[in-house]
Amino acid sequence: MTTFAHDPKQTEEVLELAGGAPLVIKLLEGTQGLGVVLADTDRSAKSVIEAFRATKTNILVQEFIKEAGGTDIRALVVGGKVVAAMQRTGAEGEFRSNLHRGGSAKIIKLSPEERSTAVRAAKSMGLNVCGVDMLRANHGAVVMEVNSSPGLEGVEKASGIDIAGKIIEFIEKNAKHGATKTKGKG
């Protein structure tokens, strides 16, 4: 379960909606694992939420999936298809699996459910190219994040697939001359 918080008066409601501690609290503007905190108790979660809210920033509060064990899946979706996937594992003692936080990556074969979940997440966000981060929970694949500007280096290295090339191929195949939506020239 993921909840969004903007109003500091909603802290109790956000904690309740997310199912109580332990919880993962994320700054919306964070990247590469920065601005992500694991709160073990409701009291610490409330303190972290209030501290983040004092900076007038938007946050997400997510259920902590303990069974994931510091491992997640990044699926790269291009044009409604998963073109590559990797499993990321956090550094020793780290719940965040980001490669920039010392995590490691290896190629992984997705289950049909995971593949379908990634494609549906991309479609629901209206994205032709994205990275879908998922966890393997006891109740199935859960989406943590859909990244509209995913880094390619880690997944290209882990998979050996030229994902940038696949993105370019998709654009070449689907671009229609003169059909851009921008108003600028150049």
Results as ranks from 00 to 15, higher is better:
1 M>A: 12
2 T>M: 12
4 F>V: 12
5 A>M: 14
6 H>K: 13
6 H>R: 14
7 D>E: 10
10 Q>W: 08
11 T>Y: 08
11 T>E: 10
11 T>Q: 09
15 L>G: 03
17 L>S: 13
17 L>I: 12
18 A>E: 02
19 G>P: 05
20 G>V: 11
20 G>A: 04
20 G>S: 09
21 A>K: 03
22 P>N: 10
24 V>Y: 11
25 I>L: 13
27 L>I: 05
32 Q>L: 12
35 G>M: 03
41 T>D: 01
41 T>L: 03
41 T>C: 04
41 T>Y: 00
42 D>Y: 09
44 S>I: 12
44 S>A: 13
44 S>R: 11
45 A>G: 15
46 K>R: 15
46 K>W: 09
47 S>V: 01
48 V>N: 07
49 I>V: 13
50 E>Y: 02
51 A>W: 11
53 R>T: 10
54 A>G: 05
55 T>S: 13
55 T>M: 14
57 T>R: 15
57 T>E: 15
59 I>H: 00
60 L>I: 09
60 L>Y: 14
63 E>N: 12
63 E>V: 00
63 E>D: 11
64 F>D: 05
64 F>V: 02
65 I>Q: 11
65 I>H: 09
68 A>K: 11
69 G>W: 06
70 G>L: 08
71 T>C: 10
72 D>S: 07
72 D>E: 03
73 I>V: 15
73 I>K: 01
73 I>H: 02
75 A>L: 07
75 A>G: 06
78 V>F: 03
79 G>N: 12
80 G>W: 02
80 G>L: 07
81 K>Q: 13
81 K>S: 07
81 K>P: 01
82 V>I: 03
82 V>F: 01
86 M>V: 10
87 Q>S: 15
89 T>W: 03
90 G>E: 08
90 G>Y: 06
91 A>F: 04
92 E>R: 12
92 E>V: 12
93 G>S: 07
95 F>S: 06
95 F>L: 04
96 R>M: 06
98 N>Y: 09
99 L>A: 11
100 H>A: 15
100 H>G: 11
101 R>M: 13
103 G>C: 01
103 G>T: 03
104 S>R: 15
106 K>H: 08
106 K>T: 10
108 I>H: 01
110 L>S: 05
111 S>G: 09
122 A>V: 09
122 A>P: 06
123 K>I: 11
125 M>G: 01
125 M>L: 15
127 L>P: 05
128 N>E: 14
129 V>S: 01
130 C>W: 02
132 V>A: 05
134 M>H: 00
135 L>T: 02
136 R>H: 13
137 A>W: 01
138 N>T: 10
138 N>I: 01
140 G>R: 08
140 G>M: 08
142 V>P: 06
144 M>P: 05
148 S>Q: 10
148 S>M: 14
149 S>W: 04
150 P>D: 03
151 G>A: 12
151 G>T: 06
151 G>Q: 05
153 E>Y: 13
153 E>I: 14
155 V>E: 02
155 V>W: 00
157 K>T: 15
158 A>Q: 04
158 A>R: 03
160 G>I: 08
161 I>K: 12
161 I>R: 08
162 D>F: 00
166 K>M: 15
167 I>S: 01
171 I>R: 07
172 E>T: 09
173 K>F: 09
175 A>N: 11
175 A>D: 07
175 A>M: 11
178 G>L: 08
179 A>F: 12
179 A>R: 14
179 A>P: 02
181 K>I: 12
182 T>F: 15
182 T>P: 00
186 G>T: 00
186 G>M: 04
